[in-house]
C-alpha cells in the first residue's frame, strides 16, 4: 500500500472518531470528575480511542517525514531528526496506552 493512502485513511479514521467524540460529549455532557470518569469507562470507547491515536501517530509520522524531506536538506541530519521524531511518537503511543489502561 502507498504511504500517501495510509495518511488519507488515518485522517478519515481520526475524523470519524472526532465526530463520535463530539456526539458523545453532546449526549452525555460530563460535568464533574465522576461523570468524566464514567465517560472514559467503557472498554469499547478506550479501544476506539487507541485506534484513533494509532491513526494519529501514523498520520503525524508521515506528515513530519514529508516536512523534513522538504526543509532539511542534509541527509545525515534528516535521518537523525526523523529517528528522534519516530522515537518520540512511539513514546507518545506508550503513554496513551498507559493513560487508557493505568
Amino acid at each position: 500500500m502507498r504511504w500517501w493512502l495510509v495518511q488519507r485513511i488515518s485522517a478519515a479514521v481520526m475524523a470519524g472518531y472526532i465526530l463520535l467524540l463530539l456526539a458523545r460529549l453532546a449526549i452525555l455532557q460530563p460535568k464533574g470528575y465522576a461523570a468524566w470518569q464514567v465517560f472514559w469507562q467503557p472498554v469499547w470507547w478506550r479501544m476506539l480511542t487507541l485506534v484513533c491515536f494509532l491513526g494519529l501517530v501514523v498520520h503525524a509520522w508521515l506528515g513530519i517525514r514529508d516536512v523534513f524531506r522538504d526543509y532539511v536538506f542534509n541527509p545525515a541530519w534528516r535521518e537523525w531528526i526523523q529517528t528522534a521524531a519516530e522515537l518520540l511518537l512511539l513514546f507518545y503511543l506508550c503513554w496513551a496506552c498507559y493513560i487508557l489502561w493505568p
Binding site: Y33, W36, Q37, W40, L56, A60, G63, I64, V67, Y92, W95, A96, I99, P102
Partner: peptide
C-alpha cells in the same frame, strides 16, 4: 502544514491534560 507541525508539538500537552484530568478528583 504549519498547523500540522503545531498540532504535533501540542501532542504532549493533550496527553498530559487527559492524564491529569483522569488521575483523581484533586487533579481534575
Amino acid at each position: 502544514r504549519i498547523s500540522g507541525m503545531f498540532l504535533f508539538l501540542l501532542l504532549p500537552c493533550m496527553l498530559w491534560g487527559l492524564q491529569a484530568s483522569l488521575a483523581g478528583e484533586v487533579q481534575f
